[in-house]
Write a protein that binds this DNA or RNA. Structure first.
Lengths: 146, 146
DNA sequence: TATTGTTATACTCTATAACTATA
DNA sequence: TATAGTTATAGAGTATAACAATA
């Protein structure tokens, strides 16, 4: 099926297509662990920010409190994380359990293999360049731009 | 919230984050037309491949027949496209209606403005480089390489 | 008043499975 | 047998709105 220039000339479209390819592969790899890329991201964020609350986690994942709640419930049910008493009586402190740590290690290894496979046609320098360009994608905020 | 190297070193993660930013902006722009990026893509594909069938459209969008059916139903209800008799009695031929053409033109203008805004910090050469790198992301298929 | 967690509910998108008609 | 469209159903992911407890 023909894809004309109106689509291909959009950076957003090329980005979406590439993201779909990589996300699909990562999702397939993580299916062995019965988790998804977003859930692995959540686990890593909790590991690197022990004691964080659900709302903050949700913000980092670009989802709201209610959605974060559901996500945390799933990870708790899988006994990968735990809700502990937080800094005040309203908040939970999320922590990664030892079993979660083990799973994260294994999943990270698998996802890195996927990432390496999907970037195999890029040199180390290409990947560096890509990283730099992707980071600069977003609204030119005006003030911070110089 | 801290994002450690385990996440940031993954091309797939950076890609997902950048895609989220651009997709969110495009989605906001298209909300005025009561459509989404995926639906605009479908309209453009139908415009550029007049008479295509639903299954083929679905493949181009990476969704299955059943999902393509629902998508086409919505676009038909909005009177943007039409199902016409296809090449045999099983298939529909999808065509963009004049009103769809008008809407696509307006939406493309809006989405291109969004794309330009979100790539404002990249030079024309940067954008060309990014296009090239994104296209090369994917499994190294072995045979077709070199 | 504002914030956190929670619950109920609903919407979007996608998939699977089965059926019909046609090839 | 295989393919296109269709339908019913279900699941994942997300959101909104409301409420209780706490700040």
């Amino acid at each position: 099926m023909k894809q004309g220039g109106d689509l291909l000339s959009l950076v957003g479209y090329q980005l979406q297509q590439a993201n779909l390819r990589l996300e699909t592969d990562a999702r397939a790899v993580l299916a062995d662990f019965d988790l998804t890329p977003a859930k692995l991201t959540a686990l890593i964020l909790i590991r690197d920010n022990p004691g964080c609350d659900q709302t903050t986690l949700g913000r980092a994942l670009s989802i709201n409190r209610s959605s974060a709640m559901k996500l945390v419930n799933i990870l708790v049910e899988k006994r990968l994380i735990e809700r502990q008493p937080g800094r005040d009586l309203r908040t939970n402190a999320l922590v990664l359990l030892p079993e979660g740590q083990r799973q994260v290690d294994a999943m990270l290894a698998a996802v890195h293999r996927s990432d390496t496979r999907m970037t195999a046609r890029l040199s180390r320098e290409d990947i560096q360049t890509l990283h730099n360009l992707l980071t600069r994608l977003g609204p030119a905020t005006g003030a911070a731009e110089d």
